[in-house]
């Protein structure tokens, strides 16, 4: 067990420092790159928050979908092979649901402001409230 602050708290503090204190003192390319750096720290923070559970769920879905076991990476490679050779197709609703869920998790970590992610979230919300 590690001591406090947590990694997530440290990352949030550093990103806040870059945005609130460093960036106003910087100009041009350096200011731009400081913003990119702060955004990159946000990705790491969201990954620490979201990925442990989401990866475990993805792993379980892959075992079910493929009827096989292996590492997360190995199962993803097996899935790619079955998609490219046509064994699994977009006609399979479990497959489509898995791909969508996995991609939505990536976006929740990487690019939560992306237009198509916001739209997909809104669609999911509308579907569950129906």
């Amino acid at each position: 067990m590690q001591d406090q602050p947590s990694a997530i708290e440290i990352l949030a503090a550093v990103a806040d420092f870059l945005r609130q204190h460093a960036m106003p003192q910087l100009q041009g390319h350096t200011a731009f790159h400081a913003r990119v750096a702060a955004n990159a720290l946000d990705i790491v923070r969201r990954e620490l928050e979201i990925a442990p559970q989401a990866n475990a769920e993805e792993h379980q879905r892959l075992r079910t979908l493929l009827g096989a076991d292996g590492s997360l990476e190995a199962l993803n490679e097996a899935l790619c092979e079955q998609l490219e050779n046509g064994t699994l197709t977009a006609q399979n609703p479990d497959l489509v649901a898995h791909l969508r869920r996995t991609t939505m998790t990536k976006l929740a970590i990487d690019q939560p402001a992306y237009s198509a992610y916001r739209r997909a979230l809104a669609e999911d919300k509308a579907a569950t409230s129906e």
């Binding site: 790159h33 750096a37 990705i43 977009a90 969508r100 991609t103 990487d110 992610y117």
Partner: peptide, 23 residues
């Protein structure tokens, strides 16, 4: 550069777009 690395994490944008286009 951080900028170059960060663009790697934009591949997922195209995944959601591909899923919308295909399915």
């Amino acid at each position: 550069s951080v900028e170059r690395a960060a663009i790697g994490r934009r591949a997922s944008e195209t995944e959601i777009d591909l899923l919308a286009l295909i399915t």
